[in-house]
């Protein structure tokens, strides 16, 4: 990756390397920056790759110093490096990725260096690149950690019900909206077995505290799902966002054929002004953008 260029004299080449090194360490004056630009302009090699090779060397040194500064002993060292980010920072990063959804095309125009590695060989492509391309899906998978335990009967999870009641008490402005059934097999059986006009009471409701940005779904009669084949996914439509991209409320399962399940909602993104809560049926893990083909339950927020 050295600069070999017949437009540059040996002296120019040496100077270019000094400037590239100092540039890596942010040590260039404005005059030197101009000088570097002129020399790079005369060079026929890839200036960006040249700069990157210096930056990578500096990064490797920094990592070496960082690692040597870790506590002695493998376990202690590993623990020190796995220290968690400050509270809330990780979720803000996840939220950043979601705002990236609309513009998440990877720039494959040029890779640093000249190698011809295939994308499938790239670990970063598999970790970072994939995250970028499907940021929201990852957020969903993450959130499913808190939602993935199947909705359990109230009797077995009274704590969730208590929390729901506490939320209603704590926030007098909290929304409480009954579910409306959509046309989907997942709710059809429940509809067939309830009295006309009683669906609003029977299907359950959604409680949402705008102030606390959390809520609970109380659901009755939704069909048991096979998590290997499909999962339910909650979407929160927000007046302040594009209707095409509602906030995801996570994926969840229903494990019992009858009775009531209560599921907490803690979306990773902020909800500005909810207009509609909708449950769709999606593939396992959820989707980034729903086709909305299967909509068993809806809860529209009344216009104030």
């Amino acid at each position: 990756m050295s600069v070999h260029n017949n437009l540059l004299t040996n002296s120019d080449q040496s100077r270019l390397e000094d400037l590239l090194c100092d540039n890596t360490l942010a040590q260039l004056s404005s005059e030197e920056q101009n000088e570097l630009n002129v020399l790079l302009g005369r060079a026929t090699t890839d200036g960006e790759a040249e700069m990157a090779s210096w930056e990578l060397a500096a990064a490797a040194f920094e990592l070496a110093f960082e690692a040597s500064s870790l506590p002695a002993g493998r376990d202690h060292a590993a623990k020190a490096m796995q220290k968690s980010l400050p509270e809330g920072l990780a979720s803000r990063i996840v939220a950043d990725s979601a705002s990236y959804r609309a513009d998440h095309r990877l720039d494959h125009s040029k890779a640093y260096g000249q190698s011809k590695r295939t994308p499938s060989d790239s670990r970063l492509a598999s970790v970072v690149g994939w995250c970028m391309a499907a940021g929201l899906l990852l957020a969903l998978v993450w959130q499913s950690g808190s939602l993935s335990p199947p909705g359990v009967p109230v009797s077995a999870e009274a704590k969730v019900t208590v929390l729901r009641q506490e939320l209603l008490k704590a926030d007098a402005q909290a929304l409480q909206i009954p579910w409306t059934a959509g046309k989907d097999a997942a709710i059809a059986f429940a509809l067939e077995n309830m009295n006309e006009g009683s669906a609003a009471d029977t299907l359950g409701d959604i409680v949402w505290s705008q102030r606390q940005q959390k809520g609970f779904m109380r659901i009755c009669g939704l069909a048991v799902n096979d998590p290997q084949r499909e999962q339910y996914q909650l979407w929160i439509f927000d007046e302040q966002r594009d209707e095409k991209y509602p906030v995801d409320g996570g994926v969840f399962n229903v494990a019992i054929a009858s009775g009531e399940v209560v599921i907490p909602i803690t979306p990773q993104l902020g909800v500005g002004r909810p207009t509609l809560f909708a449950i769709t049926v999606e593939k396992p893990g959820g989707v980034v953008v729903s086709s909305r083909e299967r909509l068993p339950l809806l809860a529209a927020v009344p216009k104030s």
Partner: peptide, 22 residues
């Protein structure tokens, strides 16, 4: 910036962690 630059990562030129540190 890591998301933005992910497409430029080449594992034959740098380790993933070095790229991230850069």
């Amino acid at each position: 910036d890591i998301w933005r630059s992910a497409g430029r990562f080449d594992p034959l030129v740098a380790d993933e962690v070095t790229f991230v540190a850069m």
